[in-house]
Simulated assay, not measured.
Amino acid sequence: MDKETFLKRIQGFVEGVPLIVLGSGATVPYGLPTMSQLAEQLETEINFNSDDRDNYEVWNEFKNKLQKTGDLETALQETRVTEAILKRVIKCTWNFVNEADKKAFDKIISNPQEFHLINLLKHFGTSQRELRVITTNYDRLAEYASSYTNGFAYTGFTNNYVGNHIAEAADQKYKQLDHYGYLIKIWKIHGSLDWFKNGEGVVRSFPHSQYIADNHSPCIITPGAEKYRESLQDPFRSILTQIDKDFSNASSFLCIGYGFNDEHVHPKLLSKAKNDNIPVVLATKEISKAAKREILNSDIQKYALIEDNGKNGTRVFLSDHEEEIVYDNEDFWSVSGLMSILK
Rank of each mutant, 00 (worst) to 15 (best):
M1H: 04
D2V: 08
D2M: 07
E4S: 14
F6P: 08
I10W: 05
V14D: 01
V17E: 05
V17H: 01
T27S: 15
L32K: 01
L42D: 09
F48A: 08
F48K: 09
D54V: 12
Y56T: 06
E57H: 09
V58P: 04
W59V: 05
E61L: 15
L66D: 02
L66W: 03
D71E: 13
A75D: 03
E83D: 14
E83S: 15
I90V: 15
C92I: 11
A100Q: 12
D101W: 03
K102G: 00
D106M: 09
I108A: 05
I108C: 03
P112M: 10
E114L: 13
F115L: 04
F115W: 05
L117V: 02
L121P: 03
K122M: 04
H123S: 08
F124Q: 09
F124R: 06
G125Q: 04
Q128I: 02
E130W: 11
V133E: 01
L141V: 05
Y144M: 14
A153V: 13
V162G: 03
A167R: 08
A167I: 14
E168C: 01
Y174M: 04
K175P: 00
Q176C: 07
G181P: 02
L183N: 05
K185M: 08
I186K: 02
K188A: 06
K188T: 07
S192D: 08
K197F: 00
N198E: 08
Y211E: 13
A213G: 04
A213C: 00
A213W: 03
H216T: 13
S217C: 02
S217D: 06
I220N: 00
I220A: 03
T222K: 01
G224K: 05
A225Y: 10
R229D: 13
E230V: 11
S231N: 09
R237I: 08
R237L: 15
I239C: 11
L240S: 11
S248V: 10
N249W: 06
S252W: 09
S252H: 07
F253T: 07
C255H: 12
C255N: 09
C255K: 08
N261Y: 10
V265I: 15
V265Q: 05
P267V: 11
K268P: 03
S271K: 15
K274R: 15
I278N: 09
V280P: 04
V281S: 10
L282G: 12
A290I: 01
I295K: 05
L296S: 10
D299K: 15
Q301Y: 02
Y303A: 12
I306T: 01
N309I: 01
S319G: 12
H321N: 13
H321S: 12
E322V: 11
V326D: 12
Y327K: 02
